[in-house]
């Protein structure tokens, strides 16, 4: 799949943003006033910034409002509805903590659940696609949710929880890569089933339908950069999980130093997740490539 920067940015940033909103909704950290304002500002900047970025790849972003209508069948529509609901409910909760010095716990809990539901709906947009076997498995939502929770805990300054959640997310990541590598072969879809000619002999793409490129090849058959995927996995894993966990475990005295180290851990985590998300798209193989004899 073509790794569109807008979608990588969207899933990375909004995943973190909604993860942070989840913890803020549960009162972690238990803050009010200005400190609370800063936390919510970061969370909304990430979540809303990500959502806005996602509209950049649309052919007609001005019609995006119509995307709220089909929640009965469409995960993309459900994501839109969930995201708006989460932002509205958490907005009410934020008004309470920032301006009124009160915590409307019920809004916080509903907002936290909706925030996590938003991440889940995002992941299901990908996980529902049978056409992309690497995405079509339960580890895809597990990955999105564990990343979001780990990043959210890190941003919320929940050191102990962040350490544990980062380790879990790292393990989910390793599992996703391990199972994902076998997914296409396991799907049973081959050039033989794609053409229906398998019982006659070995099928080979002899001549493509067009000499140039087209939308299908540009969007679904992205092979550039896959050759570096093993190195990028190491970089993504190191920056996203290993380094932040190490930094969290360092015994550090002093508030300023602690904040600096936490900031480095957050930036490292974001860079690692972006790298992992790039691979998520670049390594994903769509079955339509089989008609071109490509993956």
């Amino acid at each position: 799949m073509h790794p569109a920067p807008s979608v990588i940015l969207f899933t990375t940033l909004s995943g973190l943003g909604f993860g942070l909103l989840f913890f803020l909704g549960l009162g972690m950290p238990d803050v009010t006033g200005m400190v609370s304002f800063v936390f919510f500002a970061i969370a909304y900047a990430l979540a809303v910034g990500g959502l806005l970025a996602s509209t950049f790849h649309l052919g007609h972003p001005e019609r995006a409002i119509k995307a709220f209508s089909q929640w009965k069948t469409s995960w993309l529509s459900r994501e839109g509805c969930c995201a708006v609901a989460a932002l509205v409910v958490m907005g009410l909760y934020a008004i309470g903590t920032v301006f009124l010095d009160t915590q409307w716990t019920i809004f916080g809990i509903i907002g936290a659940v909706l925030s996590l539901a938003t991440v889940f709906t995002t992941s299901m947009i990908y996980a529902q696609l049978k056409t992309i076997p690497r995405w079509n498995m339960p580890l895809t939502p597990a990955m999105f949710i564990s990343f979001s929770l780990a990043g959210g805990a890190l941003l919320a300054g929940q050191e102990t929880m962040a350490t544990a959640l980062l380790i879990i997310a790292g393990l989910v990541q390793l599992g996703y890569w391990s199972y994902g590598d076998k997914a296409f072969a396991g799907s049973g879809t081959t050039m033989e089933t794609a053409t229906g000619l398998g019982d006659r002999g070995a099928v080979r793409a002899f001549e493509p339908p067009h000499t140039g490129s087209n939308y299908l090849l540009r969007e679904f058959v992205h092979v550039v950069g896959r050759k570096h995927s093993q190195k990028l996995r190491m970089i993504g894993f190191g920056l996203g999980f290993a380094l932040p966990v190490l930094l969290l475990l360092l015994p550090i005295e002093g508030l300023a130093l602690k904040h600096t180290v936490a900031a480095i851990a957050v930036l490292s985590h974001m860079a690692g997740i972006s790298c992992s998300r790039w691979l998520f798209f670049a390594e994903a193989e769509h079955v339509v490539g089989l008609y071109y004899g490509k993956r």
Partner: peptide, 24 residues
């Protein structure tokens, strides 16, 4: 009503849908 998100083309195993770059 089409916003040009491309998800339908992603979901089609046969490559039957193409996003028109001029019309979006």
């Amino acid at each position: 009503n089409c916003i040009g998100c491309g998800l339908c083309a992603w979901s089609c195993p046969y490559g039957a849908r193409e996003l028109d770059l001029a019309a979006g």
